[in-house]
Design a protein around this nucleic acid. Structure first.
Length: 268
DNA sequence: GGGTGATGCTGAG
DNA sequence: TCAGCCTCACCCC
């Protein structure tokens, strides 16, 4: 379930659960055996989220880099952890909690140079607290690709995934096919603030809920049914929650995207 | 119980 | 552009 909000949430929760202690680390699956052995018994100083990447800082000077990819998952147990399965790539056990990681695309130790490379190829992170709206706008202005593709490019903005790209464009009334370099300054500013507030809401809630109170016929609650939480994502053929027109979908940047042709006109 | 798609990304061609 | 990789929830039988 990993867009940027999940990663930042994990950083926050795991910081509270593990940081500041010596951590027993091992790789039940065996695929990270050497790395885990190197970290075993070291003190975990801090965890940093960077877009969809997680960086764990250890007192040995080591940095553990985790990227969940499409399938990666964390499971945290405060008490009575079940034994890890042979799918558990990395297990980290401290005095307060145990965290199991399975299915990550990346689980590796980084040296300084590799970490610099990672930072260099990642765009502004809306959850990192920086004021990077201008950088985001400038990144857009330099791409001729559709805005729907640009939002998935982690060099443009770090942390957006397929759900948020569709939802954020809907909220800002921008058609996904419009070229990124033709997004007006005020639209780019609105996009940035919308991305920030939506990712923040997702981080806090632990799930993606973009539908808000004042929109027709939908409760503003986190516990609303799953199929009412989003405006357009995976709603092809269904009526737009705002105007009733039919939600469309198409492939863009190798993934499906959904939009309302009335609420998100091609020209503004 | 099998099949499939998924909130991601890379590297080969 | 496309196959490949990682895992599992969900659907259908």
């Amino acid at each position: 379930m990993p867009e940027g909000h999940t990663i930042h949430r994990q950083a926050r929760l795991q910081r509270a659960a593990l940081a500041g202690e010596r951590i027993r680390s091992w790789s039940p699956q065996g695929r990270f055996a050497a790395g885990a052995a190197r970290l075993d018994g070291r003190k975990l100083n801090d965890i940093e989220a960077l877009g969809k990447h997680l960086l764990y800082r250890w007192d040995s000077g080591d940095t553990l880099h985790v990227h969940l990819g499409l399938f990666g998952k964390f499971k945290t147990f405060k008490s009575n952890p079940p034994p890890p399965t042979n799918m558990t790539r990395l297990a980290m056990a401290g005095g307060r909690a145990v965290v199991y990681l399975s299915g990550p695309t990346i689980c590796e130790l980084l040296n300084t140079e590799e970490e610099d490379d990672l930072r260099a190829r990642i765009g502004p992170d809306p959850l990192a607290g920086q004021r990077s709206g201008r950088r985001f706008a400038s990144n857009l202005s330099r791409r001729r690709i559709p805005i729907g593709s640009a939002l998935l490019d982690q060099r443009v903005v770090a942390g957006i995934g397929n759900v948020y790209r569709a939802e954020v464009l809907f909220k800002c009334r921008i058609a996904p096919h419009r070229p990124a370099d033709q997004i007006h300054g005020d639209e780019a500013a609105l996009l940035w603030t919308t991305i920030r507030s939506e990712l923040r809401a997702g981080e806090a809630a632990g799930r993606i809920v973009t539908v808000r109170p004042n929109d027709v016929g939908v409760r503003a609650r986190v516990d609303i049914p799953r199929e009412e939480r989003l405006y357009v994502y995976k709603r092809a053929g269904l009526p737009c929650r705002r105007c009733g027109d039919t939600v469309l979908s198409a492939e863009m940047a190798n993934r499906l995207i959904w939009w309302c042709p009335t609420c998100q006109p091609l020209s503004r």
